[in-house]
Amino acid sequence: MADNYIAINWNAIEDQIDKATWEKLTEQFWLDTRIPLSNDLDDWRSLTPDEQWVVGHVFGGLTLLDTLQSQDGMASLRQNIRTQQEEAVLNNIQFMESVHAKSYSSIFSTLNTPTEIDEIFDWTNANEHLQYKANRINGIYHEGTPLQKKIASVFLETFLFYSGFFTPLYYLGNNKLTNVAEIIKLIIRDESVHGTYIGYKFQLGFNELSVAEQDDLRNWMYDLLYELYANEEAYTNDVYEKTTWTDEVLTFLRYNANKALMNLGQEPLFPDTAADVNPIVMNGISTSTANHDFFSQVGNGYRIGQVEAMGNDDYNFD
């Protein structure tokens, strides 16, 4: 006879971080349809063709990575959960990754022509370096150990997305494309929680390994980061060759690679700090979301409750 099916009981919490993360994510819930993207059309028309190309193609790359997270990433992580509540949190994350991927299409449909949209997706689905990182992460999702899968997820959420996030944050810091950037800030807010939570779950498993096993996995982790960063340099050159931003994007990437390692409880690899990042971009990422009436869409921002992104200090890893 089969074992009884067990109902999830949110009144018997094994790990309080599951409950705290669920509450954080549900408080942060948002949809792209509530943001008046058409208000950015004047800013969009003021950009040069090269600038418009960069905006469209970084969003194409982000669409691919969010598709990967929603279709393969969370399904992979759900295979090795510790609690039923953890699975519920991963279900929430998976849904929001789909919201993120869909949001980029809302941006495309507002700013780009159908022909331009087709070209963006053709480029996205064929770019060598973009496809390399997607397939490298996806391969780990399908063939890696449970802890390797968590490393891959945190690297994607906290590191690899940021070559694309640089552009809208740069324009936000210059007071352009503010509604487009509002979506990106909401996505970053979500990814902050996702990366911290999955990093926390990684640390639980990592701390159960022997010293030798920890050393082996740590070596694998840093080798993977070096590999992904080398590819990301090439991808950044592809996307930003029409600009003078390449070096600044790479600094931003190294800064976020260190944040990914910290989410995993490891030491930073690169010397770059927040002080090294373009201050215009840091200003964009730190600008609080503007007031926005959820129902009438009055204003140029979006806020559901007084919710801030979750930082490393929000979780007690001891």
Rank of each mutant, 00 (worst) to 15 (best):
K242I: 05
T243W: 02
E241C: 09
T246N: 08
L250M: 10
Y222V: 11
D216R: 08
A230P: 03
N231W: 10
G205H: 02
M221A: 12
G205N: 00
E233I: 07
Y200C: 12
Y240E: 01
I198E: 15
W245E: 15
R218T: 15
R254G: 01
V249F: 13
R254P: 01
L225M: 14
S210F: 12
E232S: 00
A230I: 05
D238N: 07
E241R: 05
R218Q: 15
E248N: 04
A212R: 08
V193R: 00
N231T: 14
K201H: 14
E233F: 04
F252W: 08
L204C: 12
L217C: 09
K201T: 14
K242W: 06
T251K: 12
D215F: 07
V211F: 10
R254V: 03
Y226E: 14
T196G: 12
F206C: 00
Y200R: 09
T196R: 03
Y240P: 00
Q203I: 10
L204F: 11
Q214I: 08
L217F: 07
D238W: 01
E233K: 05
L253Q: 15
F202T: 06
Q214A: 06
N237F: 05
T196K: 05
E241W: 05
S192R: 04
R218V: 14
L253C: 15
V211I: 10
T244F: 06
F206Q: 01
S210A: 09
R218I: 14
D238G: 05
N219Q: 10
V193S: 13
Y235R: 06
V239A: 13
Y226M: 09
L250W: 01
E248A: 10
A212P: 07
E232P: 01
S210V: 08
V211H: 14
E232I: 00
V193P: 00
Y222I: 11
E208D: 08
A234W: 07
E213W: 10
S192P: 08
D223P: 02
D216P: 01
A212S: 11
D247M: 04
K242M: 08
Y240V: 02
G199Q: 03
N219P: 04
W245D: 15
M221R: 06
G195S: 09
V239K: 06
T251P: 09
W220H: 05
T243G: 09
K242H: 09
T246P: 05
N256W: 03
D215S: 11
I198A: 04
W245S: 14
T243P: 04
T246E: 08
N219H: 09
L209R: 01
W220Y: 13
N256P: 09
G205K: 04
Y222T: 13
V193K: 03
K242Y: 08
L209G: 01
S210R: 07
S210C: 05
Y229T: 12
Q203S: 15
D215C: 07
T236L: 00
A212I: 11
Y235S: 07
